[in-house]
Write a protein that binds this DNA or RNA. Sequence first.
DNA 1: CCACATTTGTCCGTATGTATC
DNA 2: AGATACATACGGACAAATGTG
Lengths: 72, 72
Amino acid sequence: MTITPNYRRIVDDIKQQIADGRLTPGDQLPTVAALCKQYGVSTTAVRNAMLLLRDQGIVEGHQGKGVFVKGA
Amino acid sequence: MTITPNYRRIVDDIKQQIADGRLTPGDQLPTVAALCKQYGVSTTAVRNAMLLLRDQGIVEGHQGKGVFVKGA
DNA sequence: CCACATTTGTCCGTATGTATC
DNA sequence: AGATACATACGGACAAATGTG
């Protein structure tokens, strides 16, 4: 069971980008469609990742605008 | 944001059942299919609820067995 | 104010893999 | 070998909010 699901890989990757400073509070993430292509996965995987990241208070999504890194 | 999505209603409801003592650590939750009928929603809503509850460490899912309330 | 495109949020159905019984 | 049940994944649909013209 050492396999890592796609949605968790995305979650971890975005968390890492924030930890590395490649993403800072207020930054906008790529659109869902862009992330699908970037990671080569379906909308569901990206959606699940966003669901967890939002639930953990790491990002904030706004309809019609995008997903943004939540400020501290 | 006065509306509450189905998956969050399920999350809150199960949390409430735990808080009320109607569900105690080790208890098995109804199957996904049963929860779908119980709440009148699709598998996706139930599965999203399980995704969040697992991520929050409230429940534990085991393939072939079921979903169980995690011990404190 | 209205129409339109963009983007996220939610939801539905289904298929496949894997673990348990 | 088969049934049960969760985990992951794919695809598509509609609503709501935003921005632009």
